[in-house]
Design a protein around this nucleic acid. Structure first.
Lengths: 210, 210
DNA sequence: AAATATGTGTATCAAATGATACACTACTGA
DNA sequence: TCAGTAGTGTATCATTTGATACACATATTT
């Protein structure tokens, strides 16, 4: 179990000691294994999850396909949960842990209360709204205007920017799920990229050659 | 020019008398003609526009195409402006008046101030974030998963739901711009719909037969 | 070692979408 | 009235994307 010191080493955003006390008082830490589904579309949410460690993937799904909305990393929360919990509504997306994760869970009613009391909390809430919106907007523009090939390249660039590695540890299926298309389409494009010497393909990961 | 009584007849959301006074003190009303471009992509925004009368269209554009993000009607504000003004940032979309409009313009720095002072203002801000996010999310899912034909039908349903009329006053080009495709594609689909007796086509408007 | 699940390569076909070109009509403003 | 602009119809062709099917390889589990 986390000690409170450990917890606040991770949660740098919340500077007010009062707020920290409140978090300790009302929050619960839960652990999720890789693959645990934490939020389902349609589910009523009366709690707000803030990731301490690990990574969540939030996505929408259709009958046969899915598409990535965003990832939730440490010190972040999920727009779906925030909006659903704040307005007492249900989620319109799914959330799954893709790494073993530790998550701070707060009762929904506190979101609005704290927002008026603690500036750093208010800032956190608005930052979340803004940055998730920006991400979604950018994804939207991409899906509307860019061919999949470009979106795959963008995906690689994004990964490289964030992780600094040219070995991208995703299967073709995962890539297809993130980009909202099918595995065959991705395999075809990747093979083409390999012919153009842009990448080298391996089982389970893709190596960038540029 | 609006009298203050007229103004607050329109702005029912802001109930606190204090807030109303502040709005009168700091706000300016501007008028826009149909076709006036109010916000451009890349523009720094240090003001927040709230529509009193009329309608704005907020959209993203690519070299040769554009796509609708949302409309801003009376008593609403634009997510782009809100987010850009709140965080002192630039707009990532364009806004144009598509009806003659009257717009209340507020200095950006007041957004955060008022948010802590006036609950109705805070609610307005968060509602805006949430509902614009929801709209965008839904549009995203549609673009990612639904064929254009369905999106055209959805567009008609949406219009009928909001306006109650089966005469949809859009040109093919406008429809194409809203849905992020080209005019020829729309004309083709509409002709097909007409053959199936779903619509009757006229110059400048489309009549629903269902 | 056998069984099972996951990952990859690839061919074939169909459908959706986009690009381009041109004709024609209706409206608008000088 | 004439010219210009916006709106519409439609054909042709290329490209992109998706659906389906199957082979085979590599991991994992029992």
């Amino acid at each position: 179990m986390e000690t409170s010191a450990d917890l606040f080493k991770e949660l740098k955003s919340f500077s007010e000691p009062e707020l920290q006390k409140e978090i300790l008082k009302h929050g619960k830490i839960i652990k999720a294994k890789k693959g645990d589904i934490l939020i389902r579309e349609g589910q009523y949410l009366n709690f707000l999850p803030i990731v301490i460690k690990g990574l969540l993937r939030v996505y929408q799904e259709n009958e046969d396909r899915e598409i990535l909305l965003y990832y939730v990393g440490p010190e972040q929360t999920c727009m779906m949960s925030l909006s659903a919990a704040y307005f007492d509504y249900y989620s319109t997306a799914n959330g799954i842990a893709i790494k073993p994760s530790e998550i701070l869970v707060l009762p929904a009613h506190l979101i609005a209360e704290w927002q008026l009391k603690y500036p750093s909390w208010n800032k956190f809430i608005l930052k979340t709204f803004k940055s998730r919106y920006d991400e979604l907007l950018s994804a939207f523009g991409n899906v509307a205007f860019k061919p999949i090939q470009i979106r795959v390249k963008d995906y690689f660039s994004e990964y490289f920017k964030n992780e600094g590695s040219k070995k991208i540890p995703v299967s073709h299926q995962t890539l297809a799920n993130d980009l909202g298309t099918t595995r065959v389409v991705i395999s075809r494009i990747l093979k083409q990229f390999e012919k153009e010497n842009l990448v080298k393909l391996h089982r389970g990961y893709i190596e960038l050659l540029y």
